[in-house]
Design a protein around this nucleic acid. Structure first.
Lengths: 356, 356
DNA sequence: TCGTATGATGAAAACGTTTTAAATGGTCAA
DNA sequence: TTGACCATTTAAAACGTTTTCATCATACGA
């Protein structure tokens, strides 16, 4: 009997109605009981080493794999990690980078990554409610926290395992991974100052999100330290359409004392800023400078080179995955469930954080 | 003795070990049998209208929702649509756009969208095998087909429902949605010619994929018709890192008779081309032109404006979703399972397709 | 010899659905 | 009255696991 079967079905033919081998199939072949087979495959200690091996071998031969639905029904565990993906993440593959990282963390575990896109029903507290009620997953990951994030509260109340990308200001600690956006903005702005720029502008995060506050705080600290003129372009943010940012820049330039340095929270808005300034006849590096947050390879394509500070979203995803697994495994230790990632700065400027 | 009998209030909480209401809970409350409750909720015809309503009301009151694992175990259906996401789709949110479309198509159906990222185990035929064997989904969507795509063959052999983004050249028809990349490239190249460019270059798709062939064919047809000089920048493609494309452009320009028109299959590669040409002191629209495929808002941010032809990836996703649902429902009619989308062209240039 | 660990296996009961087959009344034609 | 035929409802058997609680040798200290 040649046992190299390309299609899914095996040579011996499983005794199953649906055609898939089950524990019963193995039990019949080996003459053991279903219980024993289940235990052998689960590496239960009470099973003798030789029957264990025999069972494993048969399972391998007939291409057995456990029915997830049955496991899930019996144990209540889903072996699924859900990620909430939001519309803004369409841009520039934010979601995809993070997901790649999560997938990496889940590699080799029994967990699957499933994505619940939130493109339609914009109130994503509903999505979370749905996941909890239908126990769609063993753990949840989502991003862009608010200081008093209702999602975090809901999940905490229900004892549902989760990790956020971003911090909150809630009293009860919860697992998170965050990037130190304060230091990012502080350092970015200091770089502009070091280049001799004295009229600085910020294009930060959308109002309401925790990280937007961090960015603004970092920016403000730097400009106040240096005592230079500043402004926050508050009717646009790093999520705004490129065209809107470009227009805004042009309009601003028509007024008096326009900025000569921009701290940009994202890549697309940096690009749009360049476009707007170019429209006004100004050249990057000559009449003005930009320091932007970089999360992809996009800006490396354009000329002249934009000064950036990197945030590694794939690493973020991987950390979130690992932390969530720890959390699901029962950890309550805040030290191993919370992580604040530092911007990767050139060595000499590293300890730029000020006591505030 | 009358512990929790008639009252619908269910203040006592569900009688379940896991705390979630089940069919049994409703049966106990209404005094009906589990079978009847199941049927009532499934709108089975044999249930009287009044018990149906009563059951529905109770279900609503106590917040019942069926256990997906149990349904899945019993019926063999998963109510899940899987999407295979590949590493290249990290760039520019290809995956996210498509997923948004699929989610839209699945809206209001019992189906969930789950994403199997293929970032790690690069041989994604394995991923498909895994999905089939573990019956992880009722249907599958994936992209970037090859002319003799082994994934398509595997799925067809196993009778697994799927839709591809892209065509194959296999004998047996299968459901697909594709964009007419031939017409895209043909029309893009004709635009360059119309602008007076006579030394044309193509940055197309990665070798091996069906759509890469279509792009090349469209490009070749146009340049041959016009009888102008052409070249295919074969060691780079639209997936190449921006830096690589930029270098390649610079090197090419150092040689003799450099191109003055570029047909670009993607946005990032168009951007990188501009950068490379700018390095050489050349200005878009002046010394050279580009026509690129546009799938996002990225290029609208840069200046001068790049001429583009649009491909709507969200619409593609939505079509794929609808077709897959049709397929799962049992349709075999090729006419409603295959769809070729036309590039959106200005009206006067619309019927550009040549007989070949 | 007994009683008792000990080490390995099994039988059977769940988990929450759907589905097959059967039961219950009631009505109606003969 | 009888049987047949509806319209509703139900009991019970799955689906493939895991888990609780036995069972059954065999070995061991007494």
């Amino acid at each position: 009997m040649s046992s190299r079967s390309k299609p899914v079905s095996s040579g011996t033919g499983p005794a199953n109605s649906r055609g898939k081998p089950t524990l019963r199939t193995i039990a019949d072949i080996t003459g053991l009981a279903v219980t024993t087979v289940s235990r052998a495959l689960a590496n239960a200690p009470q099973i003798s080493i030789e029957t264990r091996n025999r069972v494993r071998q048969v399972a391998l031969d007939i291409g057995y794999s456990p029915d997830r639905a049955a496991q899930r029904l019996k144990t209540g565990r889903t072996n699924v990690i859900a990620v909430l993906l939001e519309p803004h993440e369409e841009i520039l593959g934010y979601g995809t980078s993070v997901m790649a990282g999560i997938a990496k963390a889940l590699q080799g575990t029994p967990y699957h990554l499933i994505v619940m896109p939130n493109f339609l029903n914009s109130a994503n507290i509903d999505a979370i409610n749905y996941i909890i009620r239908n126990s769609m997953a063993d753990g949840l990951i989502f991003s862009r926290t608010e200081p008093l994030d209702p999602r975090v509260m809901l999940l905490s109340e229900n004892g549902f395992a989760f990790v956020t990308h971003g911090r909150t200001e809630l009293a009860t600690a919860h697992p998170f991974v965050d990037y130190d956006n304060y230091t990012f903005a502080y350092e970015a702005t200091r770089r502009l100052i070091a280049k001799g720029r004295r009229r600085l502008a910020l294009i930060g995060g959308p109002a309401g999100y925790t990280f937007a506050g961090h960015i603004q705080h970092g920016f403000m600290t730097a400009v106040r330290e240096a005592g230079c003129a500043y402004e926050i372009l508050s009717d646009i943010d790093l999520d705004s359409p490129a065209a809107a940012i470009r227009d805004r820049i042009r309009r601003r330039y028509a007024e008096k004392d326009p900025p000569d340095g921009f701290t940009c929270g994202g890549e697309v808005c940096a690009l749009a800023t360049i476009t707007g300034m170019t429209d006004c006849g100004l050249t990057l590096g000559l009449e003005y400078d930009i320091v932007a947050k970089q999360t992809s390879q996009l800006l490396t394509a354009i000329q002249p080179r934009v000064d950036t500070i990197y945030e590694d979203l794939t690493a973020t995803g991987e950390h979130m995955g690992r932390i969530l697994l720890r959390r699901i495994a029962g950890s309550n230790d805040v030290n191993e469930l919370q992580l604040l990632l530092n911007p990767e700065l050139p060595f000499e400027t590293q300890p730029a954080r000020v006591a505030d």
